[in-house]
């Protein structure tokens, strides 16, 4: 994963609430066996409208998406995160995110920024004409007009994003702790410690 320190540029003032993963990437795009090329299917239904925001001259290729409450609800498909990345989006700002989506986003180096609705409203206004700047180190979102919004982020996620850490590699280095757990489990809950067919 590439390290991520800041995201700056145009922000798509999308604003919709309860944007589900079927809207972000419809199911027929899930038949791929790679992570690439999903930008084409991102927001397919909305982009069928020739006047859609995503393909407009101002917002095509914008790195930031501003959305409403409960962004990414629905399915666990990581294709939603891959589709956003392929579209060029590396940060989403919303009042709340579904748990699975924010985890998927984070694992692909997409920053999810949680801000209150009042801040979202202001950023939606700014985004119409001007860029937005997100700095992960200082956990702030700023605009050219002196707006400054601070956001919270889990310390572990922040460190992983800043350093571009490989989480699987990190956990594999804890092999001895995992083995110790497995040994304990064999003694305490032996029926969970094996998934073999029992005859």
């Amino acid at each position: 994963m590439e390290p991520l320190r800041e995201v700056a540029g145009r922000a798509i003032p999308f604003g919709a609430k309860n944007v589900d993963t079927d809207v972000i990437i419809p199911a027929h795009w899930l038949k791929t066996i790679t992570r690439d090329g999903l930008g084409q299917g991102a927001f397919e239904t909305l982009r069928a409208d020739p006047d859609n925001l995503f393909d407009s001259a101002n917002f095509k290729g914008a790195p930031i998406l501003i959305a409403g409450d409960n962004f990414g609800c629905g399915s666990s498909r990581e294709h939603a995160a891959w589709a956003l990345l392929d579209l060029g989006i590396t940060a989403v700002i919303a009042p709340s995110f579904s748990d699975i989506f924010s985890s998927n986003a984070f694992k692909n180096g997409i920053l999810t920024v949680v801000l209150p609705q009042s801040a979202i409203d202001r950023l939606m206004e700014v985004a119409q004409t001007d860029p937005v700047h997100i700095d992960l180190g200082s956990q702030t979102v700023t605009t050219p007009f002196q707006d400054r919004f601070e956001f919270e982020i889990d310390a572990f996620r922040k460190a992983c994003l800043l350093e571009g850490l490989d989480e699987v590699g990190l956990t594999l280095s804890r092999d001895s702790a995992i083995s110790a757990y497995e040994n304990r489990s064999r003694g305490q809950t032996p029926w969970l410690a094996t998934g073999e067919l029992v005859s």
Binding site: E78, A81, N104, K107, N108, I178
Partner: peptide
């Protein structure tokens, strides 16, 4: 439910963070 990166994590380590 988990995403594909987590599927990979569980396959490799049998754990999740």
């Amino acid at each position: 439910g988990i995403g594909t990166s987590e599927v990979e994590h569980v396959l490799a380590t049998q754990t999740l963070l």
